[in-house]
Every structure is written in structure tokens, then in C-alpha cells.
Write a protein that binds this DNA or RNA. Structure first.
Lengths: 332, 332
DNA sequence: TCGCAACGAGAAACCGATTTCTCGATAACC
DNA sequence: GGTTATCGAGAAATCGGTTTCTCGTTGCGA
């Protein structure tokens, strides 16, 4: 490896002290204009780039953020990462990606390793065990939670307005004239699942209807669960269904397809979560999309201001969902 | 931030010098057993974790790898990243994710920034302008290219056997009894596109057929290109089509659906690239899947051995694809 | 003209590890 | 018993920046 020039080389070349070079390059005021020019020129000539290890050691911080997500294959999380990464780069940070894979011990290993790395900020997705997040907070690190509010910790958090999204989707189905609207939601212990169910019921009540338990199902947020819940619902003869998560939506569609039940003529479908292939499914799928990219950007913004002002009281940002109506829920 | 204990704290606590602590913790031989035990105990008691900034500054390296990919939303790349990340963690490295977004200047910015960061290894996806990769190599950094062989640079590279994959897919269509088999491939300047076309033709010739230019199309590897190429092909009345990339496959399917052309009864379809939603499309889509996760792991392995032995001659690893036959290409 | 404040820039300390250098003690050999 | 390897462990240098401390100079007011 060719030795890169150091601040001492630049200082010698410009005939000044390393301290002055540092001041010039960091934009500190009160350096003679002539010197400033000489330093800049020398730095450019030598192709000098400050060694960030040394800088960070002295400042005891880094320009690194870590994003700990539970599944790098889930398009929801990758879109978030992309938002964080774009915003981070604008602010001068690089992003380290950590894939906890739903395994608490893997996550814990990351946390201890990253703590030693002087990482300046963390963005953590909800699936984490609270103890791990707490370790970060206790070590005085800047932490932002996304998608779900961590229990018992006052943190900067970026959430999605699940209730509103579910309500809007259900209202749309009512508006289209569907009579027996069902809901498949996730495990009741997950706040996202219960919030979406609450929105579903609220929309029904707002239209003067009464939610019927026989038209509601809890499943596990996975494809198979959606399939089985839909099969189970069939006896109740719904003419529309709101499915509270992307994978379960796929499962429900598979059941309908297997049984030759036409969408939307016999059963209309609206799904929650962005599904990149929503438009490619036949018929194209109506969805409640989450602003994933914006979610990442917002988390980055919050993280930055937390770093700049560690004493600031925690804020919670809630983002709106957007209803995309496609053929799967349109009366013909 | 609560001050974390330093090596000096451990040294004081154990009644030895910092040098000895360093030797013990790095497993250097020839330290008295009693001292070793004292040091270990003190380190554990204080919860000491070496500051990796200081260590890396001294060693002038880091435990960081950078993966520069062109699109973090493309499932192909995220699967690769996941492979790199898993393997990297086993080897003691963290992975910094960089999304060049197909923009050469954004990529260049990353390269200069990362060079200053003493990143120890790079894994770069093909879309990069060669000049950027060359800058990394010239700076003496360990670099592994993935998916495409960079022109004019002898590098460790991990490729996929595109020709074989295309050949197998086409042979399958021939085997199913299709007569007029078409091919939609990518821009001819991209090696992946031309290799897949070559495999397509080879399979035809192996079956005693002659490739017909009117059944071949070049498009841009994007959805719209696939749609238009399929529209253009329709006049030639193919009864099957091999599409050389995931997004174009989606475009082709959309055209067929829009025109009411049934799959596979009127036109059979096989796509190249893993498509996570392949089984959810109706009919389920036959695909040539690439071993994306393995590709990432292999790249990580190569990078590690390059770091350990910088003088080693470059190796090229080529991975096999796998044909998944589903309903879209099965005679009924 | 003198004194003091303000200011600009260099010298040196510092961040927290690793690694070389050095020295004292023990062991081995003649 | 004396001299020389051997070895273990501490002192100090080092990595390459940033930041404090210090000092010489200038400018302004009295």
C-alpha cells in the first residue's frame, strides 16, 4: 500500500505547523488568508485526505451509524436502510448494516462489538429485545427506534400510523359497496397488529356498522397463516377482506386462487405493507403502503439531532400511510 | 457517555503494565500464567473492551469491509449483502453498506471517503466504472468483484455461470416440446446479457435447431424494456420465451396479461434471476435462480484470503445456477 | 509612548491501543 | 563462581490527527 500523505507532510509542504493545517481544513476561523491558501493548495497537491481513524480517536467518536434490522431480505427493511443511508451520507455518515436475523444473541453480539467501535449512532428495528437497546442507551449512545415503540424506554421513535392506514383501507371497501368485510390481522401481542385491527373496527363503526367477531382472524404475519385464516374465514362468506400484512396477503390470495374464487368479483382484497410486486399480481393488488424510505430518512434526521443535542427530550414521529387502490378491490 | 475502561485502567487494576495487558488479551505467548489470570480477571471485572479506533490506528487497518452495490432495493443485491455480512461477522468484520445507485459520481464519492477510512476490504458490484475500482486497487486495498468481470483488471472475482443457466432453461423449454422459442436479453455491452444469449443459442444448436434473429431481442434489463420487447416479439408468434433478467420478465408477463395471452398455454415463460415472488404470480413462474447468498459468502471468503495474502494470484470463482421449473413453462 | 487586550500560530499534550526497546533477573554453561 | 544467553515485563515511542497551552505580535486606547 502506498503511504498516504499525513497532516505533517502537508504542514511541511506548506511551511506551517500541523495545527494550522488542522484548523484550515476544519474551517476554524482566524487563520491568515495567505496561509489558508497555501495549506489548501498543498493539501490538494499532495492529495491529502485526513485519516479518519486518527481523527475519530482524538474526538472519541466516529462518522459511522449502525442500523440493526431483523431481516435484510425483507423489502420493508431494505427500503428503510436505503433512506437512512441516503440521508446519512448527506450528513457525512456512513452506515454499517447489521442483520440480527431475529436472533437475540446475534443481536447482542452486534451490540457489544459495536459499542467498542465508538459508533456514534444507532437505528434499531423493533424486533430487538429491549435489554439490548437498553445497553446502548446506558452506554450513552444515540439511539432511534423504528416501526415499533420499545417498552419502558423513552426514545426517539419513528412510527407509522397503522390505525389510520387500516381505517382508510376499510373505508374504501365500504365505499365500494362491500357488505361483509373481513379482517386478517397479526398476533395480538404485537402493537402493529392490534392497531391495524382497531383501525378496521373504527371504520366499520364510523359507517354505522357493528364489527362481527366471526369476520376477524388473528394469524402469525406469515404466508401460511394468511392462507389458513382465509380458508377459515370462507365459511363466513365475506365479500371483501383487509389483510394486515404483506406475507399474509399473499397467502390469502393463494387460497382464493386455489379455490377458484375470483378477485375482486367474489372477494375483494386490500393488503397492508408495501409489496413491490403488487402491480404484477393479477389482478393488481390494492395496498396500504408504508412510507418506508421516508421512515429511514426521518430516523436519520432524528438521530442526527440527538447526536447534536443529547439532552433533547425524545420525540416520536408518526408517518402517514398511503392507500393505493388497484383492481383487486374495485367494483367492476 | 460513561467513560469506558481503558487498557490503563485494567493495567492498574491488575497491577501490571498496559503492555502486558495487551499481550495477554492478544494471546501473545510468554506471559506468566499468574499475571495472565490476573489480567483476564481484571478485564472481566471492569467490563473492558478494547477501543478499536485506537487499535486500528496503531495497526493502520480496520475490521470493516465495504460493499458497494448499485441498488439496495434489488433483491439480488440484498441477498448478496446478507451472505457477505454473515461470513464477515464470522471472520470478525463488520460490513458497511454503500449504495451507489447506478451513479458513477456517487460511487466515486464513496470510494474517496472510504479510502480515508482505512477500510480493509471492498466488495464491489459490477455496474461500477472501472476507474473507481482501479483507484481502490492502486491504493493497495483488497478488492473482490462480483457478478461481472471488470475489464482490464486482474481481480478476485465471483461470477455466475450465466451461459450454463441460460442453456439449461432453454433446453427445458425444448424438452417440453416448444417449437418457436424466443429470447429477450439485456444490452449487448453487458457480459451477463451476452453470456445468457450465448447459452440460449447453444441449447438450440445442441437440439439441432438454428437460432433465428427474429426470435431474439435486446432490451435494457428493466421492466418497460421487457414489456416492449415482448410486444415486438409477438408478431413472430413464439410459443415460449426465455427472459434473461427478473425485471424484464415482469414486463413480459404484463404484456401477455394485458393482451389476454395465456401462460403457458399460448406462450411459456422462463425467467432468469431469482424473483422472491415467483411462486405468488399466477401461474407460478419458472426461473433460473442465482446462488446469491452463496455468492456473497464466496466473495467474503476470497476477500479474507486476499487480505491475509495480498500477493496471491487472483482467482475467479464461478457458481452454478439452478433451474426451478414451475407452472409457467409446463405443458399441461 | 506605554500598557493591555486580542489574536494568530507553533509546541506539545492527548486520544488508547500496539510494539519496540531496554533492563533486571534467572538459568545455563564453562 | 563468573560470564553470557534467555526471557519476561515495564518504559517509552508510535500511529495521525485535534486541541489546549503558550508566546510573540499587532492594534488600540489612554
Amino acid at each position: 500500500m502506498v503511504g498516504m500523505p499525513t497532516i505533517y507532510d502537508v504542514a511541511r509542504h506548506a511551511g506551517v505547523s500541523p495545527a494550522t493545517v488542522s484548523r484550515v481544513l476544519n474551517g476554524h476561523e482566524g487563520v491568515d488568508a495567505a496561509l489558508t491558501a497555501r495549506v489548501r493548495e498543498s493539501a490538494a497537491t499532495l492529495g491529502y485526505r485526513p485519516n479518519s481513524l486518527a481523527r475519530n480517536l482524538r474526538r472519541s467518536t466516529t462518522n459511522l451509524w449502525a442500523v440493526i434490522i431483523s431481516d435484510v431480505n425483507n423489502p420493508f427493511f431494505t427500503a428503510v436502510v436505503r433512506g437512512v443511508e441516503d440521508a446519512g451520507q448527506d450528513l457525512g455518515y456512513s452506515v454499517v448494516l447489521c442483520n440480527s436475523d431475529e436472533q437475540p444473541d446475534k443481536e447482542a453480539r452486534y451490540v457489544t462489538a459495536l459499542l467498542a467501535d465508538q459508533i456514534s449512532g444507532f437505528i434499531v428495528s423493533p424486533t430487538s429485545r429491549t435489554a439490548n437497546i437498553r445497553a446502548l442507551v446506558d452506554a450513552g449512545r444515540a439511539v432511534v427506534a423504528i416501526d415499533r415503540r420499545p417498552r419502558g424506554l423513552a426514545l426517539d421513535t419513528v412510527l407509522v400510523d397503522n390505525e389510520h392506514g387500516a381505517r382508510e383501507a376499510t373505508a374504501h371497501l365500504i365505499d365500494q359497496g362491500y357488505e361483509r368485510i373481513a379482517c386478517i390481522t397479526g398476533p395480538s401481542r404485537l402493537s402493529t397488529a392490534s392497531q391495524r385491527l382497531r383501525g378496521f373496527r373504527a371504520a366499520l363503526r364510523a359507517a354505522g356498522r357493528t364489527p362481527e367477531p366471526e369476520l376477524e382472524r388473528h394469524a402469525d404475519f406469515r404466508e401460511r397463516g394468511g392462507y389458513e385464516a382465509m380458508a377459515d374465514l370462507a365459511a363466513a362468506r365475506p365479500d371483501a377482506v383487509f389483510v394486515a400484512n404483506n406475507l399474509m396477503t399473499v397467502g390469502a390470495l393463494e387460497f382464493l386462487s386455489d379455490k377458484g374464487i375470483r378477485v375482486p368479483d367474489e372477494v375483494a382484497v386490500v393488503g397492508f405493507d408495501d409489496v413491490p410486486w403488487a402491480t404484477f399480481i393479477r389482478p393488481p393488488l390494492s395496498t396500504v403502503t408504508q412510507p418506508t424510505y421516508e421512515l429511514g430518512r426521518t430516523a436519520a434526521t432524528l438521530l442526527k439531532s440527538r447526536i447534536d443535542d443529547p439532552g433533547r427530550p425524545p420525540t416520536v414521529a408518526t408517518l402517514r400511510t398511503e392507500l393505493h387502490v388497484r383492481a383487486s378491490s374495485r367494483r367492476r
